[in-house]
Amino acid sequence: MITQGAGYLRRKWSSRAMLILSGLGAGLCILILALILGYILFNGISYLNMDFLTQPAKPVGEAGGGMRDDIIGTFILVILGSAIALPVGLMAGVFLAEYGKPWAASAVRFAADILAGVPSIVVGVFAYAVLVRPMGSYSALSAGFALAIIMIPVVARTAEESMRLVPNSVREAALALGIPRWRAVVGVVIPGALTGIVTGIMLAVARIAGETAPLIFTALGSAFGYQGLDQPIGALPLQIYRYALSPYDDWQKQAWAAAFLLVIIVLGINIVVRLVSRRRRR
């Protein structure tokens, strides 16, 4: 006969309570995402049309117009940021995983983690101080620089983590074949870690595509489309910020559409990441 002591009921109910609480937490996660997506979809989709994607902005008062220039601007900034951040981030990742002596690696790792935690508006102010002020103008270049600072630690750490997953025996086997260290890293370790590295890069791209605060101090926004890397440039998040705060109904609608588009871009990148990392598992 199984005896159920006095503690049994208490344990049973505390177990249930835990299950319910954790289930609630998980449910809220999904609910919040669904609410955001649903709300943006509801408000934004009605204004998302070909004109929105292909037309430049029109002055206040004129109906129509789109965000072509800001969409292009966002792509230019993402490419610019990636062009700066990828070489630096990947090389830092290689150093962390392959070359750094333990003390040096942990120092760099600590610095990267701190850098990743710096509020993005502070990064914007920094870029303003070191690039915008000396150059005398807001510019695409300074915005790319600010975004790169945000991107570097993310890329470095994910690259490091993926390279660490490559077993040491593979490295030793390469060295034992008389393959120089750098070739072993480039030819054996990095290919082995490639899907992980690509995943990290994509997530970093998704992150900077939606950054707004650093752009306020650097890109500024532009009513004339792309004017050159040393000139102000528009970007989707900036335009959302500006249009959403404007008193004009037309602009507010466009802000919703832009928010929807931005979410679609970020979501799309995340889905691609999922597909890439699923291919690795197979």
């Binding site: 077993p167 025996s169 593979v170 030793e172 086997a173 390469a174 060295l175 034992a176 074949l177 008389g178 054996v188 290919p191 082995g192 490639l194």
Partner: peptide, 16 residues
């Protein structure tokens, strides 16, 4: 290491 090769305990084929 090019003149003195090595085979390890665990087969260390390059997976990619």
């Amino acid at each position: 290491r090019r003149r003195i090769g090595m085979v390890f305990q665990k087969p260390s084929v390059f997976p990619t």
